[in-house]
Design a binder for these strands. Structure first.
Length: 490
RNA sequence: GCCCCGUUCGUCCAGUGGCCUAGGACGCUGGCCUUUCACGCCGGUAACACGGGUUCGAAUCCCGUACGGGGUACCA
C-alpha cells in the first residue's frame, strides 16, 4: 500500500538506505496529554508510512521523579490509541553513564568547562558589566575545579550561526552569540536532558526528530553538542505546530482539559481519537477527513504538516466520534459500550441489564449519540422496573395539551390486552391506527404515539417505540400505561 | 529585554503566481423527511491581519508593520 511518489518518499532518500527511526520521548509527568499524544501519533504515522521504526523512550532524566505508576500513565493511553512502538520503552535514566561519559569527554576536549557561579552571581555580573541579563561565559577561563555544586557548561562558539532545514518549518538560523554557555551537567553531577537527548538519539540511530514546536529553540544547542561529540550528520528535524486552547495558549494541564485518559472515560473511541488528532496540523490531500487509519498512514506526509498552531475543537471530536459509532456493527457497539451499561452508576439496577435487548436496539442508539457515555440514557426505560418520574414538560405537552390523551391510552391498553408483543409492525399499526381513528372521529389531529411514549419512557423523545416494546413486554407496557392513566386522573 | 516561529471563514483543513467572484469539514442556521428525538438529504452563513513592493497577473514571492505564540532554568 505504499503510494508511488508519495510525500514521504523523497525524504527517505535524504537519509540514504537506512530506514527511518523515530522516537517519541515523553517526560513521565503523570499522564499523557493530547499534545503529546498528537506528537506520538505523528511519529507513528511517519514510521508506518515509511516502513521505519517507532521507538518509545521515557525521558526521565530527573530519575527521582519517575515512578512505575507515572510511566504506566503514559503507556496505557498509548496502547489504547493503538500507537504500538517497535522498541522500548527505553529509560533515559538507565543510560546515565553514557551521558556522563559524553560530558567528561567534552570537558577533556575543552568544549565544556566547570562553573561555580550561582544565578544571583551571574545576574550581578551581568548588571555590573552592563550586559543583558544572562550568563556571558564568565567561568570560561577562571579555571574552576570540579566539586560539589559545580556545574558543567558547554562552550558555545562566539561566532557563527547554526542553520538547519526543518521539514515543516523550513530553514531556521540562529546566531551563536544569542546562545549562552548552557549547563549540560548539574551541580549534583546529573546530566541535563540536552546532552542526554543528543547521546541517546545518536546511540539509538534516530534519523528523524518529530516533536512539538516548543522544542524548536533547543535545536541549535543540540546540534552544537552533536557536532562537538563528532557524531556526524544529525537527525532531520520536524517541529509540529503546537496545540492550543481557546485563548490560543499552549495546552497546559493546569487549565485545560487535556488528559487523554479523560477522553477514554468519557466514551470516545480510540480510532476516532486518532483520526481527530491526525487532523490537527495535517489534512489529507483529497479532503476526506474521516477515514480508516490505514488510509491515513498511506496519505500522511511530514512535508504536508502546516506551521500554525491548532485549536483542539471538542465539537469536531464529538462529530468524528459519532461517525465512528454509527459505523460500528451493533455487536461491536454493545461490546464497546458494555463498561457504561454495566457501570455501578448506570441508570438501572445492575441485574436488569440485558445485552440481548441492547443489541437489538443498538442501531437506534448508535445514530443518536456522540460518545459511549451517552448510550445508557437512551435505554434506561427498558431496564428500569417502573417509571417513577415523568419529564414534566413532556407530560404537559403530550398528556395535558395532547388531545384525548386519556382515551388514547385507554384504547391502546384495550387493543393490546391480548397482543403477544412479538410483532413490532403490528404494535405500530395498532397504536397508530388508534390515533388515526380518533383523528377522524374528533375531527382534529390526535397523536397516539406521544402519550404512549411518555407513559412508557417518562419522556417525550427517544428511540422508536415498537421494537423496544417487544422487549419491554406486555405486562410492563400495560402496567406503565395504567400508571400513566392513573396519574392523569389523580 | 533578547532569540525563534507563526498569521485563509468562529474552529480545523485545502490552496504553493493565473483553474479563487477562495474549496471541504465542524459549528451555527433555513428547509425537506418524520404522529417523538435523532439520522439522512437540500440550501445558507462566514476568511486571504495591514501596508508597500516584484509581476501582464498574488491568498500564493520579497520587505516592513501589527498582532499572536514559543523559548530564554542546575524542567523536559
Amino acid at each position: 500500500m505504499r503510494l508511488a511518489g508519495g510525500g514521504g518518499v523523497a525524504m527517505d532518500n535524504l537519509r540514504g538506505v537506512t530506514s527511518p527511526r523515530v522516537r517519541f520521548a515523553p517526560a513521565p509527568t503523570g499522564f499523557l496529554h493530547v499534545g503529546s499524544a498528537r506528537s506520538a501519533l505523528f511519529n507513528c504515522l511517519f514510521a508506518r508510512h515509511t516502513g521505519g521504526e517507532f521507538i518509545l523512550r521515557v525521558e526521565d532524566t530527573d530519575a527521582a521523579k519517575t515512578t512505575e505508576e507515572y510511566v504506566e500513565a503514559i503507556l496505557e493511553p498509548l496502547r489504547w490509541l493503538g500507537l504500538d512502538w517497535d522498541e522500548g520503552p527505553l529509560f533515559q535514566s538507565e543510560r546515565r553513564e553514557a551521558h556522563t561519559a559524553a560530558v567528561e569527554r567534552l570537558v577533556a576536549e575543552g568544549r565544556a568547562y566547570f562553573c561555580d557561579l550561582s544565578r544571583e552571581e551571574i545576574e550581578q555580573r551581568a548588571t555590573e558589566a552592563g550586559l543583558p541579563a544572562g550568563y556571558h561565559g564568565w567561568s570560561r577561563d577562571r579555571g574552576v575545579a570540579d566539586g560539589p555544586g559545580v556545574v558543567v557548561r558547554f562552550r558555545v562558539p562566539d561566532e557563527g550561526t547554526t542553520v538547519f532545514e526543518d521539514v515543516v518549518r523550513g530553514r531556521v538560523e540562529v546566531a551563536h552569540d544569542t546562545i549562552e554557555d548552557f549547563v549540560i551537567r548539574r551541580g549534583d553531577g546529573s546530566p541535563v536532558f540536552l546532552i542526554a537527548n543528543v547521546v541517546d538519539d545518536h546511540d539509538m540511530g534516530i534519523t528523524h526528530v518529530i516533536r512539538g514546536e516548543d522544542l524548536l529553540n533547543t535545536v541549535p544547542k543540540v546540534k552544537l553538542l552533536w557536532d562537538a561529540l563528532g557524531y556526524g550528520a544529525s537527525p532531520v528535524y520536524a517541529h509540529l505546530p503546537l496545540l492550543v486552547n481557546e485563548a490560543r495558549k499552549k495546552l497546559s494541564k493546569r487549565r485545560d482539559d487535556v488528559a487523554l485518559g479523560d477522553y477514554m472515560v468519557r466514551g470516545y473511541l480510540p480510532d476516532a481519537m486518532v483520526n481527530a488528532l491526525a487532523l490537527l496540523g495535517w489534512g489529507p490531500p483529497d479532503g476526506v477527513e474521516i477515514r480508516p487509519i490505514e488510509e491515513i498512514i498511506e496519505l500522511f506526509s511530514l512535508e504536508a504538516v502546516n506551521k500554525s498552531p491548532a485549536f483542539f475543537d471538542s465539537k469536531k471530536l464529538d462529530h468524528i466520534n459519532a461517525e465512528y459509532i454509527k459505523a460500528m456493527t451493533p455487536m461491536a457497539f454493545v461490546e464497546a459500550a458494555a463498561p457504561w451499561f454495566t457501570a455501578a452508576d448506570a441508570p438501572w439496577p445492575a441485574e436488569n441489564y440485558d445485552p440481548v435487548v441492547a443489541l437489538a436496539l443498538a442501531e437506534e442508539v448508535q445514530q443518536r449519540i456522540s460518545t459511549l457515555a451517552e448510550a445508557p440514557a437512551w435505554l434506561d426505560w427498558l431496564f428500569v422496573d417502573s417509571i417513577d418520574e415523568y419529564d414534566e414538560s413532556s407530560w404537559k405537552k403530550a398528556i395535558i395539551k395532547g388531545r384525548a390523551a386519556g382515551r388514547v391510552l385507554d384504547e391502546i391498553a384495550a387493543a393490546l390486552a391480548d397482543d403477544d408483543f412479538t410483532d413490532r409492525d403490528r404494535l405500530e399499526a395498532t397504536v397508530m391506527g388508534i390515533g388515526t381513528a380518533l383523528s377522524e372521529e374528533l375531527g382534529v389531529r390526535v397523536m397516539s404515539q406521544a402519550p404512549l411514549r411518555v407513559a412508557l419512557t417518562g419522556r417525550g423523545a427517544g428511540i422508536p417505540l415498537w421494537e423496544a416494546m417487544t422487549h419491554l413486554g406486555r405486562e410492563r407496557c400495560l402496567a406503565r400505561i395504567a400508571a400513566a392513566r392513573a396519574r392523569i386522573d389523580g
